[in-house]
Design a protein around this nucleic acid. Structure first.
Lengths: 108, 108
DNA sequence: TACTTTGTTCGTTATTTCACGAACTACGAA
DNA sequence: TTCGTAGTTCGTGAAATAACGAACAAAGTA
């Protein structure tokens, strides 16, 4: 009997979800979706973890493709990876069944 | 210096995201968002994992509050936990900045 | 060139996750 | 009551995750 193939989309969505699956990382993504960029140093200052731990979380977000860093010596400026963020938005939108059509009813 | 408090919403969103962070679980949720219910046995039949492993994944989804099982002897019928699913939708919608207002631009 | 700042990598430890098979439980059917 | 079906739980092992401090690398400043 043939086994189900889990779709590429489901795999991708799970990958993004996994990256979002920690409070610290969720915080960072939430922040970046609001203010376009941030510096790692500012985060360590306020988050209750040491810089090496933060670095690991940022690496996870980078590996998942959700954020990207830009060197602005001596610091690194992080922002969302717009392309992948868009993909994640689309995947979740679809997954959550928040169809594009639905909100249109709210017009007028 | 005071540390940032990660909001309740961020914690919750991270919790849901974590539960969605595995291809098998994403598959199950995706299925349930489409067809209202399913039976564990049918899943084992098609998914490339044994029943005990599936049981663990379903337990994770249950613990996260995303699904609920109803005994329909000798089987168990699973469906989304509507209340929490709604909460997850709202949290992600907000998080992904898919504001209700935004799609309005698409009108006319 | 030395110093400072910023962030990554390394080594370690504890915990969690994922997967499996075996054993167990619940319950309807023979 | 015995059997079969459906799922859960248990025990195990391998791998991944999370956290820390120490050491390291890169690059601007004194």
């Amino acid at each position: 009997m043939d086994k189900i193939i889990i779709t590429e989309e489901q795999q991708k969505a799970a990958r993004y979800a996994k990256a979002m699956g920690h409070p610290i990382r969720m915080y960072v993504l939430d922040l970046l979706s609001k203010q376009s960029c941030c510096y790692s140093g500012d985060l360590t200052e306020y988050l209750p973890i040491v810089k090496s731990t933060l670095s690991q979380h940022l690496k996870e977000l980078r590996d998942a493709g959700l954020i990207q860093g830009e060197i602005e010596a001596p610091r690194i400026k992080y922002c969302l990876n717009k392309e992948n963020w868009k993909e994640a938005q689309d995947l979740f939108l679809k997954f959550l069944k928040l169809e594009i059509e639905e909100p249109i009813q709210k017009c007028q």
